[in-house]
Amino acid sequence: MAKWGMVIDLDKCTGCQACTTACAMENSTLPGETWQDVLFYHEGEYPNAQMKWLPRPCMQCESPSCVHVCPTRATYKDEEAGGIVFVDWNKCIGCKYCMIACPYGVRFYVDEKPLLEPDLREIFPGENQQLWSPPYQGPDEDWSKGIGVQPPGVVSKCTFCHHKVSKAPEGTVDLDEDNPAVKEYVPACVRTCAPKARYFGDLDEPTSQVNQLIGDKHGVRLKDHTGNKPQVYYLGAGAGVPAFQPSDKGDKS
């Protein structure tokens, strides 16, 4: 079985957020339930200022803090699925312990006050035990892996688009959207990325595109000191961006 990894080249990323909207579309998430977010930062002052951004999916850690703290084993790392960290919605009790433990802020609980009103959950009320049932929801559902629209009271997160990736032919090394044979199996955020700042493939296969990029371009993992060992790597001069404070916390105030 492959160990799926993602590489994000911050020198090519344009901060457009297509990854964010593609993810929301593919996974039928609510506004604010941004499994794949882009954080914007700015630093310095006119006329010599910087603006940077950091696209942030779930890191699918090799040693995930969220899994260690989950009291019900609802959240688990599935080596059979390429090392993806899933939430089993059949087991999750919505205690949010994992959200506190996650160093990357990539877990979501959307049963409370909606980010935006009027509340979409009231406009498209939940049917068949779903939290909400939008007409545009995708056809894939697997609650044991946190895929589809969630039931009330659970934590949701990025699944590396397991419902797509898992259909890739056995032995696929590079899930490259430019290869017509595999484009349907590429995670939504990777598939749509216009400047091709994202790559997806097998970290266990030394010849994979992701390993080549990590090697050639000195890939780094975020917050490596935590020992979480993400399966997401960042490339580029901008890879140090998380040192800044996010701008929506307000700076110089």
Partner: peptide, 8 residues
Amino acid sequence: GKLCPKGH
């Protein structure tokens, strides 16, 4: 094969 954020 690509889109901008609005396309989705």
